[in-house]
C-alpha cells in the first residue's frame, strides 16, 4: 500500500453522477485547505436505503466491504460526503457492534472475500470535518472573498443528523450556519433544516417528492433566502432539478440556486467557478452568474 492520506474519500454513486459538482467542489476545497485526500480504491455502493429494504444482512455486508477496504489503506478517517452513504456506513458499524449475529456474518464474509477484519475506521462527514478539524475561525481567516449581502438558508437534509451521526444537533443544527457566516454569507433563519427532501421519492412517487421540495423552497423564500446550501447530493438534486416543474404547477416565481456547502466554502477560499462545479446548476443560473463573476473590484473589499 502506498502511504496513506489523512482523509480517505468515499464518493458513493451520486458524486460520480448527478452530484459530480459536489465531488469537484469537495476536492477543490480540500486542496485549498491543504488537506490530503485520496479516493478509496475499488469502493462499492453503500447500499443506501434500498438495500436495507431488501436485506439487512446483505446491506451490512456491502457496507462492511468498504470499511474493510478503508482499513487496508491505513487511513482512519473515511469521508462520506453523501448523507445516505454517511448514515449507511455508520449504521452498519452500529449493527456490527450491537448484534453478534450480524458481526459474525460480516466476519465470515470478509474472510471469504479475502478482506481484513473491521477495525476502528471513523466514518466522517464533510460538514463535521470542516467544523471540527478545520474550525470556523480558521475558515474565517482563510476567506479571500465574500459573497457580501447574499442571503442563504442552510439545509441539512435528514440522514446526516439522525441517530447514527455526530454531524450536528438533530433538532437545531447550527454548524453550517456558523461556517457560512464565517465565510461571509448572510444566513437566514430556516426551520426546515432537517426536514426530509423525499429522497428517491421524486423518482418513484413523483408528485409527493416534488411537493416536499416545494415546501422546502417556499419556506426558504419566505425567510428571505436567495439560495439554499446543502450537504447531500440527493437533497441538492431534488431541490435543484424540479424548480421549473414547481413554477409551472404553482405559479410561484421560484428560481433559486441550490449549492453544496463545499461550493460556497471553496469559492470563499479562492476556487474558481468551473473547478467548483458551479456551472452545473440547473436552477438560479442568473444569480449564480451574478454572484460568482470574478470582478477585480469585488476582491478589493475583502
Amino acid at each position: 500500500m502506498e502511504p496513506s492520506a489523512k482523509y480517505l474519500y468515499y464518493p458513493g454513486c451520486s458524486l460520480k453522477g448527478t452530484g459530480i459538482a459536489y465531488e469537484e467542489s469537495l476536492l477543490t476545497t480540500f486542496r485549498l485547505l491543504e488537506l490530503p485526500i485520496k479516493e478509496l480504491p475499488d469502493w462499492n455502493c453503500c447500499g443506501a436505503t434500498n438495500y436495507m429494504s431488501v436485506s439487512e444482512t446483505s446491506a451490512t455486508l456491502l457496507a462492511a466491504r468498504n470499511l474493510a477496504l478503508a482499513r487496508q489503506t491505513g487511513s482512519r478517517d473515511l469521508l462520506a460526503p453523501c448523507n445516505a452513504c454517511y448514515l449507511t456506513l455508520r449504521k452498519s458499524q452500529e449493527l456490527v457492534a450491537h448484534y453478534p449475529k450480524i458481526a459474525h456474518e460480516v466476519e465470515q464474509f470478509l474472510e471469504q472475500a479475502g478482506l481484513p477484519r473491521l477495525d476502528s475506521v471513523r466514518v466522517r462527514h464533510v460538514l463535521e470535518v470542516l467544523y471540527t478539524d478545520v474550525g470556523v475561525e480558521r475558515l474565517r481567516e482563510l476567506t479571500v472573498r465574500r459573497l457580501q449581502g447574499v442571503r442563504m438558508a442552510s439545509y441539512y437534509g435528514c440522514q446526516a443528523v439522525r441517530p447514527y451521526g455526530e454531524v450536528d444537533d438533530p433538532h437545531e443544527p447550527t454548524r453550517m450556519d456558523q461556517i457560512l457566516k464565517a465565510v461571509g454569507v448572510d444566513v437566514v433563519e430556516y426551520n426546515l433544516k432537517t426536514k426530509c427532501c423525499g429522497g428517491a421519492l421524486t423518482g418513484t412517487i413523483h408528485d409527493v417528492g416534488v411537493r416536499l421540495n416545494y415546501i422546502l423552497l417556499k419556506e426558504a423564500m419566505r425567510q428571505g433566502a436567495q439560495a439554499i446550501v446543502t450537504i447531500c447530493p440527493l437533497c441538492q438534486f431534488n431541490l435543484d432539478a424540479y424548480q421549473a416543474e414547481i413554477r409551472k404547477q404553482t405559479g410561484e416565481p421560484i428560481d433559486m440556486p441550490i449549492f453544496y456547502l463545499t461550493q460556497i466554502v471553496g469559492w470563499a477560499l479562492g476556487g474558481d467557478v468551473r473547478e467548483l462545479g458551479l456551472h452545473r446548476a440547473i436552477s438560479g443560473k442568473k444569480l449564480i452568474e451574478q454572484w460568482f463573476t470574478v470582478k477585480k473590484e469585488a476582491e478589493t473589499y475583502v
Binding site: 448514515l87 435528514c158 439522525r162 429522497g199
Partner: peptide, 10 residues
C-alpha cells in the same frame, strides 16, 4: 412511503 429520514426515531 417511508423515506428513511429517521425523524420519527429521533
Amino acid at each position: 412511503l417511508c423515506a428513511s429520514c429517521y425523524a420519527c426515531s429521533v
